[in-house]
Amino acid sequence: MATVTRRSGVEDPPGREPRTALSRGAGRGRPPTGGEFWWWMFMRVSGMVLFVLAVGHVLIMHVVDTGVDRVDFQFVAVRWGSPFWKTWDWLMLVLSLVHGVNGLRVITLDYVRRPGVRIALNGVFTITGAVLFALGTIIVFTFDPSRWPGVAP
């Protein structure tokens, strides 16, 4: 039996039945070159960073202590007094928006067949992401709780 190269790039050992697509759950193969390869790599690298940032964020804001009940303006004012949390939140904003918008693009490649519709849809996703990136960035870096004296520390 001929050796079969899987999408993962690993050859099935000779003398063994090549597995069919049905038994393969590994998902999308690595694109060989070009832009798609870099998007593939970006999703994995940003995924690793977001594992820490997003899971950490969710546990801190929604699970520990009294969870989301303790979150209010005062809480954010204290939190963003620290450059560490500002950096955390801004980095998470950038990575999650790009990771998410690219994820949507990958999904449209599967389900939206007409190129015009797909480009329009991805244009909407990209513009939404860009506007929210701008909004989030402006707020994180211009936020000054001393404008509301008496409320913030």
């Binding site: 303006f73 954010v76 004012a77 963003w80 904003l93 928006l97 929210l132 909004l135 989030g136 402006i138 707020i139 211009t142 936020f143 404008r147 509301w148 409320v151």
Partner: peptide, 10 residues
């Protein structure tokens, strides 16, 4: 992102 941005309005 929009709801968090509201901190900028006090």
């Amino acid at each position: 992102v929009v709801d968090t941005a509201m901190v900028g309005w006090g």
